[in-house]
């Protein structure tokens, strides 16, 4: 047995030093980005921006059901938005970096937060409860799937690099070509389900992060998130389904 006895001093152990000044940045922006709530706010705002884009994208996709002329015409119109103030495709080139910024900000914040979150529980429970981490996992891994899909999607239908047809200015034909392959469909369907799950929890989470939730509103918010996620997923999935069923050819 060891009973440690300390040599007595005037006040026992050394007096506590005054607390160290708060570490980290002192500016409002620095503090904001450094805090978990700040990063989540960045994720919420960038996520909502991407969601708006996705809704517009999904609505545009439905043009495919009205034939190649309408679809290709729509694609052409996108390049003329803002005319005559904006030059041809300027609108798209303004949107692209903004979207890229949203994707990067969303991804960086997500990666940093995930790293924190994983570090916050270094030892796992021996008795696992799957439901606890369901939402977190769908967000985290769903996000990774979406990031990978994004690369594929751009190579497929923007640059046409991996598209079986890949002819610029003919999106309708490219879409039909892509969805005529098994892998094209599989990748797309998996990704769209991931989009649905991601939006479902993400929209609700964004509302919470931005402080929009309340006890009375939470139910409505959850329903809204579910509906938006479902409509978005169904809308996107209707295109490959249309191709597969021959509705679109």
């Amino acid at each position: 047995m060891a009973l440690a006895t300390r040599t007595p001093g005037r006040s026992g152990p050394a007096r506590t030093a005054p607390p160290a000044p708060p570490r980290g940045p002192r500016t409002a922006v620095g503090r904001f980005w450094r805090s978990t709530i700040g990063k989540k706010t960045v994720m919420a705002v960038s996520g909502l921006a991407m969601l708006l884009y996705l809704v517009a994208h999904m609505v545009g996709n439905l043009k495919v059901f009205f034939g190649p002329e309408e679809m290709n015409g729509y694609a052409h119109w996108l390049r003329t938005i803002g005319d005559p103030v904006l030059h041809h495709e300027w609108f798209l080139w303004i949107m692209r970096p903004l979207l890229l910024l949203a994707v990067v900000a969303h991804g960086v914040a997500a990666a940093q937060l995930s790293r924190r979150d994983l570090a916050a529980r270094p030892v796992k429970y021996a008795h696992r409860k799957p439901r606890a981490s369901y939402a977190t996992h769908t967000m985290r891994w769903g996000g990774v799937i979406l990031a990978l899909f994004l690369v594929w999607h751009i190579l497929d239908l923007t640059t046409g690099t991996v598209n079986p047809r890949g002819e610029a200015g003919h999106p309708y034909e490219n879409i039909v070509a892509s969805f005529s392959t098994w892998y094209g469909n599989t990748i797309y369907i998996v990704a769209m389900v991931a989009v649905g799950l991601h939006v479902r929890h993400g929209l609700w989470g964004a509302a919470q992060t931005l402080g929009a939730g309340s006890r009375t509103r939470d139910r409505a918010l959850k329903v809204t998130a579910d509906v938006v996620a479902l409509v978005l997923t169904l809308g996107f999935l209707s295109v490959p389904v249309g191709v597969m069923t021959g509705l679109v050819e």
Partner: peptide
């Protein structure tokens, strides 16, 4: 700020 400094994770609204 202190909560974050103490090493707690962030909220994912689960």
């Amino acid at each position: 700020g202190t909560m974050d400094d103490e090493g707690f994770g962030g909220c994912t609204n689960t």
